[in-house]
Design a binder for these strands. Structure first.
Lengths: 262, 262
DNA sequence: TAGGCATTGGAATGGCGTTCCACCTAGTTT
DNA sequence: AAACTAGGTGGAACGCCATTCCAATGCCTA
């Protein structure tokens, strides 16, 4: 029979490892952006060939997701807990906002990521705070979704703006001015709101506005909590089921692929 | 001198046009997914060569953004207005949710889109409702951001799940079961919340939960409005400025590119 | 020390977005 | 009516990329 004892799956020299590959990927992503991460660039930096990398990583998606997860994990470990659930959520939100700003590629990587991995970390921490706020079970999911999507959405948008500005060789202010001008040139009859916001755009503070949104959602949580308490309701669903027929029979498979098992 | 009379910029036969190209793109995207849209597939369908397309479209990004915009514009035109701003926002949210579900590629296209175009349409309609609710100027932007990011974020996530399920040849229920199982296998000490939600996952109703999130945010809007009224404040900023030093000097250009002028 | 096999790395592959340029045609000029 | 011309057209070609393949390598086990 063959060897069954495999304490270490072979540990050669300074050999390749998933960890080393991810570290190198993060370095490349941070220095050269998303487009900079290619298997040839990566293998050059690791002094090897592209083929070797595939011994440790499934494909580029895997690479991006894992790199993203590394940053998210690090961010959430360093994130300070606040005295109250509200404070903790705000702290987490700001940490994520800054992390995405510092590593803009996270934004798009989070989308590509397949359900588990990075998002779940965020979901968990927010969820714990939501539980601490005694939000009823039936509403927890929607509440966490609202917060998580806001944080990742606005964070990603902000980062995308930064990348766009860099591509155009503009600094923050010039970029916002340019956007403002474009918005001001829209049809005033069709775009009254956008035009009215346009002028405030260059002066606005991304982080302050970002936090204001978090507070808005949190105040919604509080309001529903208070209403529930004063009415002494079970409040399990909380959904007024309006227009709730789904229009399609949902998805049904056609094109088979391989990919790692979920 | 040369000809200056150019009534039509030349109209050959059934000639190519930006419109025809976008229509064909949408058809391909809907039938074959995001990966199916290639310039060779597109030019084959249009009975021409890839080069001809570049006379009307800048690049693939342009193609995707414009196709996305076409769907968003159509969706918002068909979207019914409600009796109240709340009702209108809910109707819009559901319309977008369904549109993204029907055209899953919109989700990723919206991210790639460069600031203007599709997002602005959504932003405008929500903004108009927010104004109708008499939210003070200083809070409008954060409010619209919260709603828009929630709608597009959750919608995109839902669509991504659908695509993932299709790729794995699973129907909705089996897919949710699989995700639920993965979540249940997480460390119970580290992931108490995620585990607690996992069991509810297969039974949950995406659209109901989605709407619940919209209502959550709207209730936050209402709560802040009532507080403002009862306290009779101007409430211009509404941000309690905690931890608001930005850590980096923001972005500063390095890599020049070409691309169409903003 | 000898053998075996997982790891390695570079060459090869197929496909993509994009560019290039010879051709063609509609509209203008003579 | 015939020649001209500018710009739309389409197919070939380019460079780059993710991914695969396989011969060579070197570590572990026996």
């Amino acid at each position: 029979m063959m060897a069954r004892t495999k304490r270490n799956p072979v540990q050669r020299r300074e050999s390749l490892s998933r960890k080393r590959i991810i570290e190198a990927s993060v370095e490349i992503l941070d220095s050269s952006g998303e487009d900079g991460l290619t298997f040839s660039a990566l293998s050059k930096r690791l002094a090897t060939g592209p083929g070797a990398i595939y011994g440790h990583i499934a494909n580029k998606n895997d690479l991006l997701t894992t790199a993203c997860d590394a940053i998210v994990a690090r961010t959430m470990k360093d994130c300070e807990f606040g005295a109250t659930p509200h404070a903790t959520i705000r702290a987490l939100a700001l940490s994520m906002f800054d992390a995405i700003d510092a590593h803009p590629w996270i934004g798009s990587a989070l989308i590509r990521a397949e359900l588990h991995s990075p998002m779940v970390r965020v979901q968990e921490l927010i969820g714990q705070q939501i539980r601490a706020l005694r939000v009823p079970k039936g509403r927890q999911w929607a509440t966490v979704s609202a917060l998580m999507n806001y944080i990742l959405g606005v964070g990603g948008q902000n980062a995308a703006n930064g990348q766009l500005a860099r591509k155009r060789n503009l600094n923050r202010l010039d970029f916002l001015q340019a956007v403002s001008n474009i918005w001001l040139q829209l049809e005033s009859t069709e775009y009254p709101f956008t035009r009215s916001v346009a002028s405030q755009l260059p002066a606005h503070n991304e982080r302050a506005d970002f936090l204001a949104g978090v507070d808005l959602i949190l105040s919604g949580v509080d309001a529903l909590q208070q209403r529930r308490r004063s009415q002494n309701l079970a409040g399990e669903t909380g959904v007024t089921a309006t227009q709730l027929e789904s229009k399609r029979p949902y998805y049904r498979g056609s094109r088979p692929r391989k990919g790692p098992g979920l």
